[in-house]
Design a binder for these strands. Structure first.
Lengths: 231, 231
DNA sequence: TCAATAGTGTCTGTTAGACATTATGGA
DNA sequence: TCCATAATGTCTAACAGACACTATTGA
């Protein structure tokens, strides 16, 4: 241990305004979609992310669940922070710090409330700059985590076909996957188990339904993956 | 587009107090270490994470740089948010929302200021519960990102031996790596380039020094890696 | 029967990990 | 010389991706 100072650090807290911005993501019409709500921005109404300030005593994830539920009609299955922004208040009544939270909602979830609507990620209307940033970060975080965390299962109903699962992975990763390799890797992962049910969707052979049921498994491969670096 | 509601959502902002907690990480004595400072906690002095409220107009990362510099004497090379906590104010003068930020400082950085000290992650003194959480999250985030982002190079001086680099990876991953495989993967990644210098450290053959110099490279492998799931 | 989708077996090129070997310094 | 560390070559088992094939439904 070293000498103690005689000028201890004693920071002072400062008042600020806080908002929680929620990016509810769900696969809709073969694209990853974001839930937006109609809300007044200045004098007019525009589409914006659902947001609100946390209530006293309410945690950030609790606030996100409440905010998402108000737009979706039901609570999403999964929440994850995607970053806190402090770009300063631009207009009176706006917050100067906002916590961005991504939420995942299965494709089977009910239609949104009347004042809300799904928009594909690639075709969003104009958003406030901060909301645009939060959406981009949410998409990036979800895409980055998809093969390190079982996120994909939060975008599917409790039972699903392996083709459904692969389609979600392809949505999140933004590229096609090889069917046989995908199933081999999935088999080795012990993440799903088959059910007794089959799903028939018009033409073609019916597909067996699976459920998410992670189990113990042998040690994963160990190598360092430099090749995932993006920069 | 659907019917517009006649009860638009208009959330109200609310005043809150904000803190930035900084976890400066650096490899020290063959372990990943955290920088702590002496600061008053209630009536006594304890070791705590460096923290402060952001100043008016100051961004969160700017605040983290200022806070870390005050304890370290120099600014860390890299910052990354690890989560925002809102577990409620427990004592007067404490913040009720805190943004946790991890900072990486190379092993070669100068000794910390007098009121600060490095502690190995495994041997930290008792911290406030919120600070303990932030430290754990910082360690988890850094360990998770190490093979998706060139974090390891932020923990090394500008030039380093491949054994140094491997040691940092082993610290972050918490396991030993195979030397030949490590170098093969590194070679294929085009992340480093050799310099003309060699480093001799007592016994043994001198090692060539390398520097971080990422370049273009062929497409990365494409498979889905279910086996990295932790849950 | 054809079309469409589900699901599987086999081959091959690539690579992680193991092992062995050489290289080069200090004691 | 011995020891310690650096650096590299070779072998093998495992695996990703490609391809081909069978299976099962509706039209």
């Amino acid at each position: 241990m070293r000498d103690r100072p005689n000028v201890p650090i004693k920071p002072a807290v400062r008042r600020t305004t806080l908002a929680v911005d929620v990016v509810v993501l769900s696969p809709r019409a073969d694209a990853l979609a974001v839930l937006l709500v109609r809300a007044p921005v200045g004098a007019r109404e525009k589409w914006t992310l659902p947001w609100d300030a946390p209530q006293p005593g309410e945690g950030l994830e609790d606030a996100a669940a409440r905010i998402a539920s108000a737009a979706l009609g039901t609570a999403p299955a999964y929440f994850e922070q995607v970053g806190t922004l402090s770009d300063g208040r631009r207009h009176p009544g706006e917050a100067d710090v906002s916590v961005g939270i991504a939420a995942l909602s299965p494709a089977s979830a009910d239609a949104p409330m009347e004042e809300a609507e799904w928009f594909p990620l690639a075709g969003l209307p104009a958003l406030a700059p901060r909301h645009r940033t939060v959406v981009d970060r949410a998409a990036a975080v979800v895409r980055q985590r998809v093969d390190q965390s079982p996120l994909a299962f939060r975008l599917l109903p409790p039972t699903f076909t392996l083709s459904d699962l692969q389609a979600v992975y392809e949505l999140l990763l933004g590229r096609r996957l090889h069917k046989a390799s995908f199933r081999r890797a999935l088999q080795a992962s012990y993440l799903v188990e088959p059910t007794d049910e089959w799903h028939s969707e018009g033409r073609g052979r019916p597909a067996q339904l699976f459920r998410y049921a992670p189990r113990k498994r042998r040690g994963a491969r160990r190598g360092v993956r430099f090749d995932l670096f993006t920069e």
